[in-house]
Design a protein around this nucleic acid. Structure first.
Length: 632
RNA sequence: GGUCCCGUAGCUCAGCUGGAUAGAGCAACUGCCUUCUAAGCAGUAGGUCUCUGGUUCGAAUCCAGACGGGAUCACCA
């Protein structure tokens, strides 16, 4: 309709305004609820052209449109806004059209370029937490939304499986894990501990022992015992200690941190971890075996969590595979003159001309840094998928600078696809008490949280659900759907770019702007449809009322909502749209009879309307990774 | 300190490609289940859109500055 009006005005602009008008002049907006009309044209832009007051300009355009477009039944000009009344038949036709289309709102699959969506990519030393939930739900949903927009999507993640941090947990396990009667050290099998949690336990164990050892060393130094340490270390310690004199509290703390770092570098534990990394790079069989074993525990543990989350991946990338390619690219870039080498052998890129800094891309000892492997991974991906047009990186906004630099480097290296790489930068998730801090033990574990919301949903469902006749498997499935749906919706309804506050109590709420509220509406509609038992063919009511028209209007917006969500990489657009639709539908549901409507034609129309609302709810929620039940 | 992000009702958030009287939910208060699922609906109350300037017929929205909060500036990832 908007396009029709637009083209009519553009075609006849000479006759109407005596000049050719720019398309920009034609601005539509939704008609306010308290005035008459279905679509509003803003007429301020035309006022100057017509050299008359807004009321006259509106009247002139209104008369023209009523004459030209049969579906426009009338108009009213209020305060410079032309409110157009569109005939019921137009809305009825809209409903009939979507009614016959099971894929309403979705673009044809494969009609747009292939895009890779990276998400999750956790540190393999720590179990997944609340922040990862936002990441995973967001990445998964964006992938689904892009598919709905016609893109072919490859879901992926980069597995952070190499580096000194991995060696730390390996070392701690080897040194500190208790040995049982059978002579075995702790494994997921013999302890029943989830693999990622067990590895995480040893990472924490390493950190604990590591700090304790550093503390002991500092104590020795403070007592003047420097046996076994180099004179350089001794001098540095004395210099730092003396520097504390007369400084304020904050400065002293900074110096203490430096002393701690100095001591940490002298620990046997760190030296052993570094030795292990060297052995790993040399593919020492024993270290490699330990590495593959412990990694497999983590993957198994993560696999369980991913399954519970309902997310999946089409292709995995491992840093241990891509960091070497990254090094090759650095050499290539060095030859091209994009990078430069410093005297100590380290390789850098100078981005000062672009308003950034110099950035290291290869260490002086020739080992790879984060940036190196990210370059390698990106190139690897475009090699693997020749049709790939771009990559969406779902990574927290604390890495904004990293990705700015990465994309700039790729561009300077001459990769044409660099401009199609996008950092989907999302905000942190805070708790009511503030930031999550592992040191203070306030990190919310992903597995625990998912179990809690399902448990809470189970209680609520038993209390008020319509669950007679459901098997225990069906009930369990339903409660999972409600609990996890609620959690996903809670994390996705907020604009991803914004930092958000996570309130555990609110996340299991069932009222208001929540998934259970939406799921409930879907279940009610399904109940109506199941009871009606007839094919919805006859959709010709004698008239449609305001609330019915309002629902159709909102339904017709669905395709453009999917487009907007895709363009902005924002599931929250879908969430908020669905919530509005459901609210409108519930008002309708409470104000009229549907199944009990005596007029057969009207009843069929209302059932058709309801069934399309249900269809859109189901599609929309699917794009958020949320299932909807037929009863609850 | 440099760079980037954010600031809307008591709380959590929409609205931001400029448009009519700034909206929801939660919390508080009042009603509605002998008719289709009350996990619902109707209503009351709650605002200096952080502040100050600027652009404009028109600014929560765009621009500049101030204030407040956060992130980031590693041979960490």
């Amino acid at each position: 309709m908007e396009n029709l009006i637009k083209s009519k005005i553009l075609e006849n602009s000479e006759a109407l305004f005596g000049t050719v008008v720019d398309e920009q002049f034609i601005q539509f907006q939704k008609t306010r609820k308290d005035v008459q009309g279905d679509l509003t044209l803003v007429i301020f832009p035309f006022v100057k052209l017509l050299r008359c007051n807004p009321a006259d300009a509106g009247t002139k355009i209104g008369e023209f449109l009523v004459k030209e477009i049969p579906s426009i039944g009338g108009y009213e000009v209020v305060n410079g806004f032309l409110n157009l009344v569109i005939a019921d038949n137009f809305w009825l036709d809209q409903l009939k059209e979507m009614h016959t289309n099971p894929d309403f709102g979705l673009a044809a699959p494969g009609s747009k370029p292939t895009i890779m969506v990276e998400y999750s990519s956790p540190n393999t030393n720590k179990p997944l937490h609340l922040g990862h939930l936002r990441n995973n739900f967001l990445g998964y949903s964006v992938a689904e939304i892009l598919k709905a927009n016609g893109h072919t999507v490859v879901k992926t993640q980069i597995i952070n499986d190499r580096g000194i941090h991995i060696c730390k947990s390996m070392l701690a396990w080897e040194k500190f894990s208790p040995v049982n009667a059978k002579g075995e050290r702790e494994t997921p099998q013999n302890t029943g501990i989830k693999g990622d949690k067990l590895v995480g336990k040893y990472y924490v164990e390493f950190d604990k022992r590591f700090n304790a050892e550093a503390k002991t060393i500092i104590a020795e130094w403070e007592n003047g015992a420097f046996d076994g340490y180099s004179s350089a270390v001794k001098e540095e310690f004395i210099r730092l200690t003396e520097a504390k004199a007369g400084k304020d509290e904050k400065a002293v703390k900074g110096i203490d941190d430096k002393i701690k770092d100095l001591a940490k570098n002298q620990t046997t534990l760190l030296r052993e971890a570094k030795d292990m990394l060297v052995k790993w790079e040399a593919r020492d069989p024993q270290v490699y075996l330990l590495w593959t074993t412990m990694n497999s525990w983590v993957y198994e543990g993560f696999g369980v969590t991913y399954k519970e989350m309902g997310v999946d991946f089409d292709k995995l990338y491992y840093e241990s595979d891509t960091f070497l390619l990254g090094k090759d690219i650095v050499i290539e870039g060095l030859n091209k003159g994009v990078f430069f080498k410093k005297e100590d052998g380290s390789v850098w890129i100078d981005l000062t001309a672009d308003g950034l800094d110099e950035k290291l891309v290869l260490r002086s000892d020739g080992t790879a840094v984060y940036m190196t492997q990210d370059m390698g991974t990106a190139v690897d991906r475009f090699n693997d998928y020749p049709d790939l047009s771009g990559i969406v990186y779902t990574v927290g906004n604390e890495q904004d600078y990293h990705f700015k630099v990465l994309f700039l480097i790729l561009e300077k290296l001459g990769y044409s696809w660099a401009s199609n790489c996008f950092h989907l930068s999302y905000g942190m998730v805070d708790l009511p008490e503030g930031k999550m801090k592992s040191r203070e033990g306030t990190v919310v574990d992903a597995d625990d949280l998912m179990a809690e919301v399902v448990e809470s949903a189970t209680e609520m469902t038993k209390e008020r659900g319509h669950i007679e006749g459901l098997s225990s498997e069906e009930l369990e499935k339903l409660c999972k759907m409600i609990g996890l749906g609620g959690l996903k919706y809670f994390l996705l309804k907020v604009d991803p770019r914004k930092r958000m506050k996570f309130n555990p109590a609110e996340s299991v709420e069932l009222n208001g702007n929540t998934a259970p509220f939406i799921q409930y509406t879907h279940a009610r509609i399904q109940s109506l449809l199941a009871k009606s038992g007839t094919e919805l063919t006859d959709v010709n009511p004698s008239g449609i009322n305001e609330s019915e028209k309002e629902i159709i209007k909102q339904l017709t917006e669905f395709p453009s909502v999917i487009q907007e969500a895709g363009r902005d990489y924002s599931p929250s657009v879908i969430a908020n749209y669905t919530y509005e639709l459901v609210k409108t539908y519930n008002q309708f549901y409470q104000s009229v009879y549907i199944l009990n409507e005596p007029d057969e034609s009207l009843k069929m129309f209302r059932l058709a309307l309801s069934s399309n609302v249900a269809k859109v709810i189901k599609t929309a929620m699917r794009l958020l990774g949320i299932d909807v039940p037929n009863r609850m």
